[in-house]
Computed example of a mutant assay.
Amino acid sequence: MKKVLYTAFTILLCVLVSCKVEPEQINYGSDACAFCKMTIVDQQHASQYVTKKGKQFKFDAIECMVNDLAEKGIEEIEIFLVADYQVPGSMTLAKEATYLICKEIKSPMGANLSGFASKEKALIIQKDSGGDLYTWKELLIKFDAE
Results as ranks from 00 to 15, higher is better:
residue 4 V to R: 11
residue 4 V to A: 15
residue 5 L to S: 15
residue 5 L to V: 12
residue 6 Y to K: 04
residue 7 T to P: 05
residue 7 T to C: 15
residue 7 T to V: 14
residue 8 A to I: 06
residue 9 F to G: 12
residue 9 F to P: 09
residue 9 F to R: 08
residue 11 I to P: 07
residue 11 I to D: 10
residue 11 I to K: 02
residue 12 L to Q: 09
residue 13 L to S: 14
residue 14 C to L: 15
residue 16 L to F: 04
residue 17 V to N: 12
residue 17 V to H: 08
residue 19 C to T: 15
residue 20 K to G: 13
residue 21 V to W: 14
residue 21 V to Y: 14
residue 22 E to W: 02
residue 23 P to G: 03
residue 24 E to L: 09
residue 24 E to Q: 14
residue 25 Q to A: 13
residue 25 Q to G: 03
residue 26 I to S: 03
residue 29 G to M: 15
residue 29 G to K: 11
residue 32 A to C: 07
residue 32 A to K: 02
residue 32 A to S: 01
residue 37 K to G: 06
residue 40 I to G: 12
residue 41 V to W: 04
residue 42 D to S: 15
residue 44 Q to Y: 11
residue 46 A to E: 12
residue 46 A to Q: 04
residue 47 S to G: 11
residue 47 S to H: 09
residue 49 Y to S: 06
residue 51 T to S: 12
residue 53 K to W: 06
residue 55 K to S: 13
residue 57 F to V: 03
residue 58 K to V: 05
residue 58 K to D: 10
residue 58 K to A: 05
residue 60 D to L: 08
residue 63 E to H: 13
residue 63 E to G: 14
residue 64 C to V: 02
residue 66 V to A: 02
residue 66 V to L: 11
residue 69 L to V: 06
residue 69 L to K: 03
residue 71 E to T: 14
residue 73 G to Q: 12
residue 73 G to K: 05
residue 74 I to S: 04
residue 75 E to I: 09
residue 75 E to H: 07
residue 75 E to T: 14
residue 76 E to V: 07
residue 77 I to T: 15
residue 79 I to D: 12
residue 79 I to R: 09
residue 80 F to T: 08
residue 81 L to R: 13
residue 83 A to G: 04
residue 85 Y to F: 15
residue 86 Q to H: 05
residue 87 V to K: 10
residue 88 P to G: 11
residue 88 P to Q: 11
residue 88 P to V: 12
residue 88 P to R: 09
residue 89 G to C: 06
residue 90 S to N: 04
residue 91 M to A: 14
residue 91 M to Y: 07
residue 93 L to W: 09
residue 94 A to S: 07
residue 95 K to Q: 12
residue 96 E to H: 09
residue 97 A to I: 01
residue 98 T to R: 01
residue 100 L to C: 15
residue 101 I to Q: 05
residue 103 K to L: 07
residue 103 K to N: 14
residue 106 K to F: 03
residue 106 K to P: 02
residue 107 S to D: 13
residue 107 S to V: 11
residue 108 P to Q: 08
residue 109 M to K: 10
residue 112 N to K: 04
residue 112 N to M: 11
residue 114 S to M: 07
residue 116 F to Q: 02
residue 116 F to I: 05
residue 117 A to P: 00
residue 118 S to G: 09
residue 120 E to P: 00
residue 121 K to R: 13
residue 122 A to D: 02
residue 125 I to C: 03
residue 125 I to Y: 03
residue 126 Q to W: 04
residue 127 K to D: 03
residue 128 D to I: 05
residue 130 G to N: 07
residue 130 G to E: 09
residue 132 D to N: 04
residue 132 D to S: 05
residue 132 D to I: 01
residue 135 T to H: 02
residue 136 W to Q: 00
residue 138 E to F: 00
residue 138 E to I: 00
residue 138 E to M: 01
residue 139 L to T: 00
residue 139 L to V: 02
residue 139 L to N: 01
residue 139 L to E: 01
residue 140 L to H: 00
residue 140 L to S: 02
residue 140 L to N: 00
residue 141 I to R: 02
residue 141 I to E: 07
residue 141 I to D: 03
residue 142 K to D: 01
residue 146 E to R: 00
